[in-house]
């Protein structure tokens, strides 16, 4: 049991590290989602800002801080 867990875990880790080290395109591919997530978040913000008629964002931010 223990051997199985250790061997499997070590194999998965080594494989991932090897791929990451030897395959630059993998690094780009594996890191891409963290940028696309932010891009998508920005799209939603832009849409929300467009929907917001005449609200000053900074004034809203200050309102949030008021009790």
């Amino acid at each position: 049991m223990i051997n199985l867990i250790v061997i499997l875990t070590s194999a998965i880790m080594c494989t991932l590290l090897l791929v990451w080290w030897r395959w630059p395109v993998f690094r780009v591919w594996i890191e891409a989602p963290k940028y696309s997530m932010l891009r998508q978040e920005r799209r939603f913000e832009d849409q929300d800002t467009e929907r917001e008629p005449a609200t000053n964002l900074s004034s809203m931010a200050s309102m949030r801080r008021s009790p």
């Binding site: 395109v25 780009v28 591919w29 891409a32 940028y35 932010l38 891009r39 920005r42 939603f44 913000e45 929300d48 800002t49 929907r51 917001e52 008629p53 609200t55 964002l57 900074s58 809203m60 931010a61 949030r64």
Partner: peptide, 27 residues
């Protein structure tokens, strides 16, 4: 209909680099 989301929106350095293409070769 209040939306507060764009507070202090400034792109980070690595995000900007990614969007400029320097860190994002076409996959």
């Amino acid at each position: 209909d209040a939306i507060v989301s764009g507070t202090g929106r400034t792109a980070s350095v690595d995000m900007a680099a990614f969007e400029n293409g320097s860190a994002s070769p076409e996959v």
